[in-house]
Design a binder for these strands. Structure first.
Lengths: 221, 221
DNA sequence: CGCCCCGTTGAAGATGATCAAATCTTGTGG
DNA sequence: CCACAAGATTTGATCATCTTCAACGGGGCG
């Protein structure tokens, strides 16, 4: 069993090992705007999102916000670190979550090497996502940022094709991309004018030219 | 030589477990500008920096660069992930490194839970640093970025006090902070004019008012 | 029906980028 | 030790992108 599993298979393995280790936990509901965890809270629980969508974010004292990630069903948060939550978590849409005791997870970590491996792999993927986001925030233009966002969301939720749904507000998108709502809106309009996307409704976007969009996202010279 | 400040207990534990697991490895030298790893390279080795300093970065096709981190002596890279390196690594100053086979590390991971825990904790810390950098890149002004950088570097290298040494060029700082060299330079000048720092030489900065600098870095409203 | 929130559009402004040039550092060779 | 050259940093002027401030429109829900 020293064979490296295919990425697809490994991902499933990962999820399983963690799911099994965590057990059932407590199910809870969250309404839009409901805050589940505040940055700095003692790290007593970790969570798995079952349905809905969350934003994970950090904030500055004056209210400026940086959304670190949007959490989709099946994904975890609060798994890493040891002292405190590193970000706040807030429901965007009505959501259901499973909540687990961190103590249980850490105990299992000592026991199951499959679990340890799964958690480490989760961390690796999260690290890579976050690093890609550093490049986006530091070096991409507004247009490239929005294109990147659409392509990534499409890959995550729609398997890369067709109409995609934006469950979050323009404010959330702006806080994720390091922009303002006006710039996000204007950029979407420009992409529409250029024939790259169609805006069916504010929250429904059709990717007309995914390849050109992708090229834009990657900052093709 | 000045004595090195005693690191936190946990950090020492972490370092030890990883050091022990990796064994001795191969020592190598790198001159300034020398590229040790290119983003996308197969992940066959991981490294520990012994002396010198590296930049870890991602780049876009047209050459725009985002520095993810500066690696200081004692720190590792290439430890996470499974397929490919997620970033490039390049020496800034003459450096020495220890190189290890990833295969060995992964084998040890199955055996030693102390190692697994240490690696996971390394990942957690790296995640937290990267998330803080997302907030910086997405939501801080140039002045806040530079202040954050100086405070963080001071904490990392000087234990938080006195004169700090900037071993990297203005270009590196700019690519780390999502700015241009001109803006970095102008911002340092403004901080000097405001009495927050003194620029002894381009690479030697004295923090005159670390507390005000820190407040600025945190975006105090 | 009408309010309210969200998104879009418009105009003006500011921060940081770009283009350009002067100055300082550093290393080399006389 | 000094002169010089090459590169890095700083400074200046102008410009562009994105932000801010403001107003309008449209869809959903009471």
């Amino acid at each position: 069993m020293h064979r490296t599993p295919a990425p697809e298979q490994r991902r499933r393995t990962t999820a399983c090992a963690i799911e099994q280790a965590l057990g059932i936990g407590i199910t809870l509901q969250a309404d839009p705007g409901q805050i589940l965890v505040v940055e700095g809270d003692p790290l007593r629980h970790c969570f798995r999102l079952l349905t809905g969508i969350l934003r994970l974010y950090k904030a500055l004292p004056d209210g400026r916000r940086q959304v670190l990630a949007f959490l989709l069903p099946g994904e975890y948060f609060g798994v890493f670190g040891s002292e405190r939550h590193g970000y706040s978590a807030e429901a965007i849409a009505p959501s259901t979550l499973a909540r687990y005791r961190r103590a249980g997870l850490e105990a299992e970590l000592d026991g199951s090497r499959a679990l340890a491996q799964a958690v480490l792999e989760l961390a690796s993927r999260e690290l890579e996502h976050t690093r890609a986001q550093l490049l986006l925030l530091g070096r991409k233009s507004a247009e490239e940022k929005v294109a990147s966002f659409l392509i990534a969301l499409s890959a995550r939720t729609a398997g890369g094709a067709g109409v995609i749904h934006l469950p979050m507000s323009r404010q959330d998108m702006a806080d994720y991309l390091g922009l303002t709502i006006e710039t996000v809106s204007r950029t979407l309009t420009r992409l529409r004018q250029d024939g790259l996307i169609a805006l069916l409704r504010p929250q429904h976007v059709l990717l007309l030219e995914p390849e050109r969009l992708q090229a834009l996202a990657e900052g093709a010279a």
